[in-house]
Write a protein that binds this DNA or RNA. Structure first.
Length: 686
DNA sequence: GAGCACTGC
């Protein structure tokens, strides 16, 4: 600890904090900011009048950093120093320094908007610009104006964006603390390959840019094997990514055998989440795979995009943690200086904002117009309007944009708004138990099936058992059936393995479900009780569940095209889409899909697909279409908008325009029918 | 028949 560079700056830091309410600290990698800032404030007495909170974007970081600090202060974790993450609160009345994820702090501010228990809030790793950190930045800016005494905010960031954060906080002071990294030499790609090592890796990495990771791993293996024996060290090639089972992930941490070099082929998990010590060479492709939301279509896509300077520096820094290193950048220096963005596009500009907008609405901040909320980097008006429309359609806000009582209840649940709405409806329909299961399964879904590695398949003695099929209703019902089967097998771990389900994922589902159940019980108290699973007929509960989903996902319904198996989405941005091939929902004996479905998300890969699809009934869809038709975004956003957006658009859409205020369902149906026929006729001509 | 970034409540 004494060796950490930040320690020399203690006096300067404390002086600045004493004289200013907000301070930005640029702490380079290895400066010790995450562990030391809180201790300095503790020594100076800032913990006498409140707790010092330090937020982290990741759970593991909150746990490991607090553990370190407890060690350094020689106290037991959970007493003077503690942490709080989802499902785990290791703090006590004695806690003076508290590490927590930014999501937990947002939850806390829901019940205590002034965050009075804290005398200092440190937003650590703000340069990562997680969605939650960005919202906290906006809230902190308000809070410092309201809590003018006994409240300080510190924000740690990276060199390239510190100025911007300081400007955001009325030009607050900015301190720079050097890091403790060994020098990393940087090579750009046009400058010569000299050693076999570099050129072979370069070849391999060229492949990496175009081909999946697994191919790189196997091609690297081939190349290394073809090297003359004894001509160089042995090599161990290790893939590293998030969907790898934990036991495969930890392999990168074990030291390499003698006379053997490790090659770690990693996703951006190695950029921030995992730090592998002993790395000397880093090869940086200059790209990252990024998920983005397009509010104009309501569709997600997974794109390979250029990284930012902050990311490039972060990657290079991974080479110099234990001794001097080298970083090979597979792009010319001109690209870095001229084309790379300074900082990564913040998540808030790449996500659907329904959840965040509902959160902000539920805070009841008196003087806030959601479209004018003071964000460090504001999301587009289009994206905010998209969120408002989604919230209106599921009754979270009324036609004037004010939060409803249903909306308030929804904000209490740690779920995306559509799932919260589904739970509330399911409680009314008597299928809450099943809905809780589906909600929990969906929020973990991507981590359920293990990454398909060839190694895994070879190692298996028996092929995995076949999972339930959703009884013809689709993926949501399948998820429900999987969990119910696990429940019948007493949550047995071996059972998960037999079905090739990730134990980690399923265990998480169980915890999420428990948490949701507790919250629902609390919410329902006083009004209608949480209705227990009244062992009705399965089909009846499936039906109620599907109906609840159609209300929660009112903007995510789709209708099958008449003459083929494509679907047209029925939201305010109609799209032509197909059922994702991974769905359990398959065409019937006549080769046809059901007429109406609800989907969990749209994802554009080679084509636009609906992921996680479930059948619904026509009569549930019609009232929703009616509401959709009456939607007026000008009112939702308080009328302050300069433009009017058509409710229906897109070449497939022929939903009736606003001819009358109220259209009877039957009339609507016939209009839709007529519109569909016009569309098909037109299409036929072409 | 497609596609396997990463977090978080």
């Amino acid at each position: 600890m004494a060796n950490l560079p930040i320690v020399q700056f203690e006096r300067k830091i404390l002086e600045t904090v004493d004289q200013n309410q907000v301070v930005v600290v640029i702490g380079e990698t290895g400066s010790g900011k995450s562990t030391q800032l809180s201790q300095m404030l503790y020594r100076k007495g800032y913990t006498d009048s409140g707790i010092v909170a330090v937020t982290q974007p990741r759970r593991v970081a909150a746990v490991s950093v607090s553990r370190r600090v407890a060690q350094e202060l020689d106290v037991r974790l959970g007493e003077e120093v503690g942490y709080a993450i989802r499902f785990e609160d290791r703090t006590s009345e004695r806690t003076r320094i508290k590490y927590l994820t930014d999501g937990v702090l947002l939850r806390e501010s829901l019940s205590n908007p002034e965050l009075n228990q804290y005398s200092v809030i440190i937003l650590d790793e703000a340069h990562e610009r997680s969605l939650n950190t960005d919202i906290l930045l906006g809230l902190m800016k308000r809070l410092v104006k309201r809590r003018t005494s006994n409240f300080k905010v510190l924000i740690t960031s990276a060199t390239l964006d510190g100025e911007k954060v300081s400007k955001f906080f009325s030009d607050c002071p900015l301190l720079t603390v050097p890091g403790k990294l060994f020098p990393v030499e940087i090579f750009y790609s046009k400058e010569r390959p000299t050693s076999y090592l570099e050129s072979s890796l370069k070849t391999a990495l060229d492949i990496h840019v175009r081909e999946p990771e697994e191919k790189l791993v196997s091609k690297l293996e081939d190349k290394v094997q073809s090297l003359e024996e004894g001509s160089c060290m042995d090599a161990l090639i290790l893939p590293l990514h998030g969907s790898l089972p934990p036991e495969m992930q930890v392999r990168v941490f074990s030291p390499s055998p003698p006379n053997c070099r490790r090659f770690i082929v990693a996703t951006n998990i190695a950029e921030t989440s995992l730090t592998v010590d002993g790395v000397v060479y880093v090869i940086d492709s200059g790209y990252v795979k990024q998920r983005q939301y397009n509010p104009a279509t309501g569709m997600y896509s997974l794109d390979v995009v250029q990284i930012s300077k902050v990311q490039a520096n972060q990657r290079a820094g991974r080479a110099g943690r234990t001794r001097p290193g080298k970083c090979y950048r597979l792009y010319p220096s001109r690209l870095y200086t001229e084309e790379f963005l300074d900082a990564t596009v913040p998540e808030i500009q790449r996500s659907s904002l329904a959840g965040s907008v509902l959160y902000l609405k539920s805070l009841d901040l008196p003087d806030i117009d959601i479209l004018k909320f003071d964000f460090l980097d504001p999301p587009s008006t289009e994206s905010l309007e998209d969120a408002l429309k989604q919230l209106y359609l599921i009754d979270a806000i009324d036609e004037n944009g004010s939060i409803t009582s249903i909306g308030r209840t929804m904000a209490e649940l740690p779920l995306e708004p559509s799932l919260s709405r589904t739970l509330i409806e399911a409680n009314e329909f008597g299928c809450l138990s099943q809905a809780l299961t589906v909600a929990a399964m969906l929020s973990v879904e991507t981590n359920l099936l293990p990454g398909r590695s060839k190694n895994n398949e070879k190692k298996r003695k028996n092929p995995p058992l076949e999972l339930p099929d959703g009884s013809g209703f689709g993926d949501h019902i399948q998820l429900l059936q999987i969990y119910e089967l696990w429940d019948e097998n007493d949550y047995n771990i071996g059972w998960c393995k037999d079905y090739d389900l990730q134990v980690r994922g399923m265990t998480f589902v169980k915890e999420v479900r428990k948490q949701l159940c507790q919250i629902m019980q609390k919410i329902a108290k006083g009004s209608s009780e949480v209705r227990a699973n009244q062992s009705r007929k399965r089909d009846q509960s499936y039906r109620n569940l599907r109906k609840a989903l159609s209300i929660g996902y009112a903007n995510q319904l789709a209708e099958r095209m008449r003459h083929h198996n494509g679907f047209r989405t029925l939201g305010f941005k109609p799209q032509l889409v197909q059922v994702h091939p991974s769905s359990v929902l398959k065409p019937d004996d006549d080769g046809l899909y059901p007429n109406y479905v609800v989907y969990h998300e749209l994802i554009a890969t080679s084509r636009p697909y609906m992921r996680n699809v479930c059948t619904v009934e026509r009569q549930w869809v019609m009232p929703i279409l009616e509401k959709l038709d009456k939607l007026d975004v000008r009112k939702l956003s308080g009328g302050g908008l300069g433009h009017v957006e058509e409710v229906t658009e897109g070449n497939v859409s022929e939903l009736p325009k606003k001819e009358a205020d109220v259209i009877a369902p039957e009339e609507l149906e016939s209009k839709i029918q007529a519109a569909r026929e016009r569309f098909l006729a037109r299409k036929g001509k072409k």
